[in-house]
Amino acid sequence: MTSMLCISRHTPSGNALAREALDTVLAAAAYEQDIKLLFMDDGVWQLLKGQQPSHINQKDITKNLSALPIFGVEEVYVHEPSLQSRGISRDSLSLNNVQLLTNEQTQALIASQQHILSF
């Protein structure tokens, strides 16, 4: 099966990219594809606990993200340096079954994929 990695690098509310990345991953999972999701750069803000996007008339992406395992997406990665540079600790992430990756591990993950989807 083709290995695919979706890289989500943008904030949850600033534009539609975060949601489009998630929709793409859920669609690939529905086709039972080998799809993984990596959060890095401003994409890690999507994982921060306590978001109340109803204040700006948006849906809560956190609830959708927590559905990833039940939709069959088992591999969710977070680029740890992106967390560190934003002062986000692992405890403040809304998902707890994510794997934190160093730069080297992220490089290896990207290199091992047949397709990359950039969001």
């Binding site: 859920l26 529905a30 039940i70």
Partner: peptide, 18 residues
Amino acid sequence: REFELAPASRALVRYVQQ
């Protein structure tokens, strides 16, 4: 209520299992 998504086939089966 939990996920703000309607379950597709596989998610439905898994959730019912759980």
